[in-house]
Design a protein around this nucleic acid. Structure first.
Lengths: 139, 139
DNA sequence: ATCGATGCAAACTCTTTGCATAGCA
DNA sequence: TGCTATGCAAAGAGTTTGCATCGAT
């Protein structure tokens, strides 16, 4: 699992500066085991940095994605981010309510590959959506 | 597989009018075995109806989605539509180049369900992306 | 004739970009 | 000091909506 220390190291290794904003964004993701959108990051950051701008949120989310610090998925046409999980390949259950995730240590690609001879496979997506135990009885 | 006849029937059954535009949109999807975006529908329709507006494209795509005439998926944050396939549950390979699809008659949910006791599963998505045989050597 | 469908224009959401300034190394 | 990160403002893409009119039934 990615964390603050590793993330800052990766920033430095790739010649990016470590700013307060960058540090705080990582801190936010460190404590949120779930997919959040740019809005949520902005809400968190505005408290710490009243002058925070959305541009910086987006720019850094994009940077973190490139540096493999964050994972991305598109939910309802909106990008959602979370701290990068373990390096082993896996998929996720994602709660429609709170965005929290549960790892699914399985992958259907073995079977799918057999059905796709002659096809050039570049990527795949497997996600399960619903309500996590905590969110089932709220509302 | 959904077709023009069934689609018009479903429109009437749900008290929607059958207009030329609606008929022609269905005809377009009938001959395209692939996921296309609103832009592609618009391009096709503009030839037949020079006064065609994007609003009508979007309104009808949305209507067809609700009536289960079209399937939807979000690719790169953009909605893509195709004619509803066979009623048996299945998934798709989707070509990143032309949007053409190949059915994958398999579903990882049996195994996933076992891992998600206590979770309320509402939906899931499994898609494989890449290049179909026809698109591999173009470019 | 009635009521839903459409075109027009505007607005809305999410996201990206150019530029001058602020701030890390 | 030098160069990157940031805020501001503006723009861009995709999509939705209110309203007057058009058109299917």
């Amino acid at each position: 699992m990615m964390n603050l220390e590793k993330a800052l190291k990766r920033l430095r290794e790739n010649n990016h500066k470590v700013t307060m904003r960058r540090r705080d964004i990582i801190t936010f993701f460190e404590q949120e085991n779930r997919y959040v959108n740019a809005r949520a990051v902005m809400d968190f950051m505005e408290n710490l940095h009243p002058s925070m701008s959305f541009d910086t949120v987006y720019r850094n989310l994009h940077l973190y994605e490139q540096l493999n610090i964050l994972e991305v998925t598109t939910l309802d046409g909106e990008k959602h981010f979370r701290m990068k999980c373990s390096p082993e390949h896996h998929h996720h259950f994602i709660c429609n309510d709170c965005g929290s995730t549960k790892k699914l240590p399985l992958c259907p690609m073995d079977q799918a590959t057999e059905l796709l001879l002659g096809y050039d496979i570049e990527d795949h997506k497997f996600e399960v959506y619903g309500r996590c135990p905590d969110c089932q009885f709220t509302l």
